[in-house]
Design a protein around this nucleic acid. Sequence first.
DNA 1: ACACACTATGTACGCGCTTACACCACCTGC
DNA 2: GCAGGTGGTGTAAGCGCGTACATAGTGTGT
Lengths: 389, 389
Amino acid sequence: MVTLYDVAREAGVSTATVSRVVHGQDRVSDSTRLRVMHVIEQLGYVPDGAAQSLSRRRKEIIGFVCVESHGRQYDVEAMNLLYYDEVMRGVGAAVSDRGWSLLITYVDGEPERDFPRLRALSGKVDGIIIGQSVVPAPVLAQIADRVPVVVIGGAPAERAVDVVTADNRSGSAALVTHLIEVHGRRRLFCVDGPADVSDARERRTGVERVLRAHPGTSLVGSYQGKFSVQSGVSAGESLLERHGDALPDAVVAANDQMAIGAIQALNRAGVRTPQDVAVVGFDDIYPGGLNDPPLTTVHQPMRLLGERACIRLLDRIARPELHPRAEVLPTELVVRSSCGCSPDSAVRQPVKRTRRSRQPDGSATGPPQTAARRRSPGPADVRIPEIVS
Amino acid sequence: MVTLYDVAREAGVSTATVSRVVHGQDRVSDSTRLRVMHVIEQLGYVPDGAAQSLSRRRKEIIGFVCVESHGRQYDVEAMNLLYYDEVMRGVGAAVSDRGWSLLITYVDGEPERDFPRLRALSGKVDGIIIGQSVVPAPVLAQIADRVPVVVIGGAPAERAVDVVTADNRSGSAALVTHLIEVHGRRRLFCVDGPADVSDARERRTGVERVLRAHPGTSLVGSYQGKFSVQSGVSAGESLLERHGDALPDAVVAANDQMAIGAIQALNRAGVRTPQDVAVVGFDDIYPGGLNDPPLTTVHQPMRLLGERACIRLLDRIARPELHPRAEVLPTELVVRSSCGCSPDSAVRQPVKRTRRSRQPDGSATGPPQTAARRRSPGPADVRIPEIVS
DNA sequence: ACACACTATGTACGCGCTTACACCACCTGC
DNA sequence: GCAGGTGGTGTAAGCGCGTACATAGTGTGT
């Protein structure tokens, strides 16, 4: 292994000078610089990351905690992972823009294993990004006590850590408004997410609010799923069993996976989507557009979520005295066919904030600049046309 | 920040003893151990990763290089990433089983940016896993000169680095054999992958070998795509344009994305799959099963690929004197409907090695034990039934 | 009673790098 | 001619941890 000392000796300078050349900030005479650079090239010197971290007292690494459904359930749950993959890419992009690195840790929901893992992680990074409800709150608190933590998803004012989340409530409200006002749907069925996931609760709240504002509409029933395709299938079966005689005219699932599962179950029973029952999802994962029928859903800006979380985290690392904040990112309504719209009228429509949530620090965070700047061009900016259902 | 010294002072012992307690390997008296552990708990001590790495002369981190299509093309290419996400999860699982960590680096094909990034990466990890053709060979060679490197994918005997790959040739051969023998297809069209990706070349070779063995069959034409959905659409359009008067009866795409794209293009022109033209893919990415019609394809064991690559890498790190080897993992034929089979007869069938490839070290590597052990239960083990086309 | 083995613990150095500080040579202005 | 810069470079003290080696303490056999 080639070290700084080897380079220094070979170039006839001190280690300090080599270090200065490597980082190019301090003044070094041109002749010395050239000589040192030549030796570096020739010897193939690459600085040791561990030594740099130790010396700088900063590792320039951030940790990302990923959920991992192990073993048997893996295939069934596969799509659940799509969400985190997307977020991670956002984090990855933001991180490498700044020359930092990304350390991944997988947890599988087994506290015996997960806690030591996260604990060890906190000694290897300068900050951690984690999905909401990936680990229990007390564990999170212990970790957050050691290094800055940003939580992705969840209700804005939830915790004493930074939160970056999508505007779940407005998103599902927009979706239900579309079902009611454009397609005249009246009798809804909710496929909810797990009770301990506040994203899921927020989405349900959005539904209820719209229902309350529209006389003549009602919630026929609901089913609590687990965000998996399989639980969507179960939801569909439960729906058929309990309300087979008087089906609702729309199913609102708390995520795309469950919507896809529900469509499959209905389909098998001869109930057609969207003719008999409209079905909508949430998140806008990739396969949703490939589904038959293509899924109408709410786009959650997963990549941006990751980017913002990363930026927020780096900010906290640079200035630890800052108070935790929440940042709520806008969503988009993605109209495809499973709501009853014709395939031709596929559009994406930005969802406006229905109501500003209170922030932990009392301020109301608007959409960050990058939201608009980074949003992909094209369909997103198309105005919503007259939709013929 | 709480250090080893703080713990030692507080517990009234030396740092050596604390270190021994933390790692639990050397003998320490029970009373001392308990006292130290209590102090550790109380102070919330977590060892500093950088210091450990430096001191041990081993970072216990492995690097994974991920491709990242930036900007505009992002949405279109999205599915391309599914492959690496899956592989990465395999690597992640193997890595954390052993208590090591995973450091992710994204490259975007811009050598100016990529090379310094990889160079820096090599100073932060003990070894690197990278997809074939992610970076040019010379760059790879430079990196491999510094730390052990395992390449995922590619022809077995390709390089002076370790390779872990799926049996592309046998896989595509099995697919084409199925099309010919079960469905009586005779006139094929190939949608190839990029010329510099040897996975793609291998698949094409598999097709040709089967064609040669079956008199009366022929290759009507081919199109060179880029592995993206969009290029699959282009392939379909090109096919219609050039062979519209006498369509082939089957399209063999080098990956699922292009197969999906081709189906879309054919569909728009009123050509039905599989009635008019059968279309098959390769890889078995998740959305393929959701496609309309569900895609017949070859399952590439992406997760296992990641696991094996990781194990191989750790082996190389532990014993650097080992020679590079290639490991070829078996594939499975996944029969769904796009080949012409009925939806009910969906099966997965292990693909046997058609011919052993020569290995760099002269040995012929059979499927590793874990291949069979880890393969998910259920459909994979079902015998292939009589298929009615 | 003494040499020896064995266990429990402490001392101190090195891992490779950064950086505060010291130093030297040379220049400027009075 | 000399104080006071200023630019270029070297010296050396850590950063937090692991561990080889030294040491103290406690048996064991003769």
